[in-house]
Amino acid sequence: MNDTHPTFEELIDYAHGELAPARDAALHEHLDACRDCFEAYQAEVQIGDLLRVHARETERELPLGFAQAIVRNATERRESFWERWSSVLRPLAAVPIAAAVLLVAYFGFARQGGGPKRFDPSYYLEDHAALAASVPFEDAAALPAMLTSDETPEGTDGTP
């Protein structure tokens, strides 16, 4: 629908008397002039009418003795201990329970190693020591250039 014609949503709101006064008046005027929109509006009104007719047809009386049973049950039935206290305790208990759940979740997560992995330098030192031990007579050799300085030792860069 374009700007001048109402949408179906507006027609539903109009049928329920829920449009703003200015829009309600504009739509009222439009429906007088526009046959298509008026038919669409009538269809919405008809659905409402059918629903109310159906509701009237299917309306039931209260079952026999039910009203008395409601009063009897309500007045005779005592609130259980839990029912009485649950409404009071529920808001009071909510905050500590939420805090406990958060704490358990946090520490449980941390214990399982879910946090950031820590750097363990001893592993690399031991690894280096083991490598060095496996290559005898190499202690005197020059260390790789990249680990010591920018200068390239003579005869180690592979150039003639």
Binding site: A55, E59, R60, E61, L62, P63, F66, A67
Partner: peptide, 11 residues
């Protein structure tokens, strides 16, 4: 209230 609104509530 049951007398006045019981039927409406039930429906």
């Amino acid at each position: 209230v049951v007398e006045q609104y019981g039927k409406a509530t039930y429906n």
